[in-house]
Write a protein that binds this DNA or RNA. Structure first.
Lengths: 136, 136
DNA sequence: GTGCAACTTGAAGTGAGGTTTAAGTCAACA
DNA sequence: TGTTGACTTAAACCTCACTTCAAGTTGCAC
């Protein structure tokens, strides 16, 4: 357990000091002491920050991430069901992005005079958009 | 070419009237007339909205989408290179999401007493995070 | 002990993408 | 002709995740 000041945590985490203070205000991390006014962290905060970053990637808001760190109704961790749900959601988003990427590649390759006139584009556009934006 | 009022466009596009007015202010769409004060659209606006939605999915900001609709230096469309670049970027994001989803599934399945103690979790966590958040 | 870079604070600002509000207008129906 | 409900506007407000600012304090090197 090394003691780190805010500049060291900042440097090792890639987060700005202002972000660390902000996270502290939100209850996501805590400094475990002060040297005078100055925060001192022990290096477990880096693991915590990694978990926060993971939570963000997993699509959780800072509020949600914060509540994962505190027991709620006796449970300290997300239910497995909830985690699998979120994983499925992420995979859905991944597929959407793939489809959109394929569409962009088509646009880049298509030689139709205008994409709006290309039947393949029209079909892909309809397929890609979950929202029912185009007329029936 | 049907004429639509804002409520009809809203209903068929799934966007709120306030959003349509906001898009108009940003120069993304235009009503082609007024009946009294009230906007009238023709149904080509729905295609336009579909393109805007596509642009958003493709990771472009409304400003960028707006500028795609107006000629810039004689070109009306994004360069093919730029499109392929964006497609690659999206595929990269898709892979990231996949990796995060896999990590969540592991967490859901892992029986280690605490995830922080699970070596597989630690490794996946390190692998998943591009940011160099964990100590070396 | 003195200087100053690096910290501290609360409050306000940022940017993206809208939404809400207040006050007013008006097309359409009875 | 009167009512009403859907529209109009500009401006303020919202959320999220931070960043910046102004003013004040202080650990540490010299």
């Amino acid at each position: 357990m090394y003691r780190l000041d805010i500049a060291q945590v900042s440097q090792r985490s890639g987060l700005r000091p202002s972000t660390l203070r902000y996270y502290e205000k939100r209850g996501l991390i805590a400094s475990d002491g002060r040297r005078g006014l100055r925060r001192e962290y022990d290096d477990s905060v880096l693991t915590r920050l990694a978990l926060i970053a993971l939570g963000q990637r997993a699509g959780y808001s800072l509020d949600e991430i914060g509540s994962l760190f505190r027991p709620q109704g006796g449970k300290y961790e997300l239910g497995r069901l909830e985690l699998r749900k979120q994983a499925d959601k992420l995979r859905g988003q991944a597929h959407e992005l793939q489809a959109t990427a394929d569409l962009l590649d088509h646009v880049a390759a298509c030689t139709a005079p205008s994409h709006l006139e290309c039947p393949r584009f029209q079909r892909l556009l309809k397929d890609t958009l979950t929202a029912k934006v185009l007329p029936p």
